[in-house]
Design a protein around this nucleic acid. Structure first.
Length: 207
DNA sequence: AGGGTGATAAACT
DNA sequence: GTTTATCACCCTA
């Protein structure tokens, strides 16, 4: 399957991110309807993007074909997942922040022990956990079934009036760019948390 | 209900 | 050595 809008230039990644709301991602027996995403552009355009300073071993997937999965590791214990978009050679991606489980909820509950249903995939690392994914999915296609992830269109079109926009969560740079998009009224949308600088280890005593 | 904090690893400077 | 696109848990009200 090929979706032309995924290949829109990196400069239009915000539009691509909006379009992804309401789409579903399936993997390992669980299907999730996306309710919250964030857009990240490429080299030189978006200081918050991993690809801002050009390709590295970690970010080379972002420069590859649209529709591939970019999985990265943060904070020593969490995986987050993006759908690569833009033209090949350009870096752009949409971070999948949250969604609602629509199929395989029993499996998702097992993977996310002690979580109420609305929190099964509320938050990017939780979403990845609910889908049973990790670094093995990095670089695979989400379009043709050759990898563990499959992206599919909404069963019913999303009402554009329900799409809200705001600043991205936890991003230190580009604090004022409203590239987070979510569906208003959805229980599975993660609460906004502004970036808080990491406190250094208590090497010095407070005054 | 809500805020602070520790856990833990890889890339980048 | 520093930063990081986070989460779960432990406190206080």
């Amino acid at each position: 399957m090929t979706y032309s809008w995924l290949h829109a230039p990196a400069a239009q990644v915000a539009t691509t991110a909006r379009t992804l709301l309401g789409w579903t991602v399936s993997a390992n027996g669980v299907k999730i309807r996306l309710t919250e995403v964030e857009a990240y552009a490429g080299t030189g355009e978006d200081p918050a993007s991993h690809a801002h300073r050009g390709p590295t071993p970690r970010t080379e997937v972002m420069f590859g074909p649209a529709g591939n999965v970019y999985v990265y590791f943060v904070f020593g214990m969490h995986w987050c997942m993006n759908i690569v978009c833009g033209r090949e050679g350009e870096a752009a991606a949409v971070l999948l922040r949250a969604g609602a489980v629509t199929e395989g909820i029993e499996i998702a509950r097992q993977r996310r022990a002690n979580a109420p249903d609305r929190e099964l995939a509320r938050g990017p690392a939780r979403l990845v956990t609910a889908l049973g994914l990790d670094r093995d999915a990095n670089g695979t296609s989400a379009l043709d079934g050759s990898g563990p992830v499959l992206l599919a269109p909404p069963s019913a079109p999303v009402d554009p009036a329900l799409i809200a926009a705001g600043p991205r969560v936890g991003v230190a740079a580009a604090h004022d760019t409203p590239w987070r998009f979510w569906l208003v009224g959805e229980e599975s949308v993660s609460p906004y948390r502004r970036h808080v600088p990491r406190r250094r280890r208590p090497s010095t005593l407070p005054a």
